[in-house]
Design a protein around this nucleic acid. Structure first.
Lengths: 125, 125
DNA sequence: CTAAAACCTGACATTGACGTCAGAGGCAAG
DNA sequence: CTTGCCTCTGACGTCAATGTCAGGTTTTAG
């Protein structure tokens, strides 16, 4: 498929797909005229890339980790494994922080709601 | 206390504290010479601001939400409450995505580790 | 064949939360 | 009084993923 279709199927912009290629995250086969062509597998690959971006990894870090996703049967050095584990931990910490932030928001919402009730039924007590 | 001490106690840069003030998130009392002075409460306030930034809220959104944290006993319009609830949900979705991303990383790590075992004990089977 | 739609490269623009630097004034200690 | 540290304002720099535009080629539909 061509780049427009891949973009449509992944929900990622054409611009971003070209950027991913520039960053070495995605490869394409070029037709004689220079147009990029992708395989079905690339849909999934782009999904993974997006997920890693969401996780807060940079292009460079994703590039380090991707080979492991590509060829799970090769060694790819302990460094990459180390890197993945490290990013996983960082992500885990971040999730913990986000949950705390959500709790803080929850508290605020609860207090605001409670006070609204007070306003609505001032004669309740 | 002056800005340097607040920075030290919150772990936030002096630059950021000025930026927060510029964004209307933090106020200070100015001495005759123009220096900013803060209260003990501001330490906690900066912590909350940081937490909201971590949660992915923009300055503008934090500015909308902060009045509720400041004065829980006022109404502050349903709009702010609505906004908080909305941000909370957005954050929740984001957390879910991050957990999925972490799971993906976990899978990769597990596969890589398993393969390393295979290499280390090739005669195991 | 022709026009529209999709693609190409290259380059500049954007956004947001800061970093950093310059030049000037403020404040406590010796 | 002066030395050294803190603070002030203002402005420009940064970074990373993307948007966007220009000018040109390719593909597709009619």
């Amino acid at each position: 498929m061509r780049i427009g279709e891949l973009a449509a199927r992944t929900g990622v912009s054409v611009r971003s797909l070209r950027y991913y290629e520039e960053q070495g995250l995605l490869t394409s086969v070029r037709s004689a005229s220079g147009q990029r062509h992708y395989t079905e597998d690339d849909v999934e690959r782009v999904g993974f890339i997006q997920r890693m971006y969401t996780a807060g990894l940079s292009s460079r870090t994703i590039a380090e980790v991707l080979p492991c996703a590509d060829a799970p049967s090769e060694e790819h050095s302990d460094a990459a494994l180390e890197r993945m584990a490290q990013e996983r931990d960082r992500l885990s910490e971040h999730i913990t922080e986000l949950i705390r932030a959500r709790d803080a928001l929850d508290d605020l919402v609860a207090i605001a709601r409670a006070h609204r009730e007070t306003l609505r039924a001032p004669a309740a007590r």
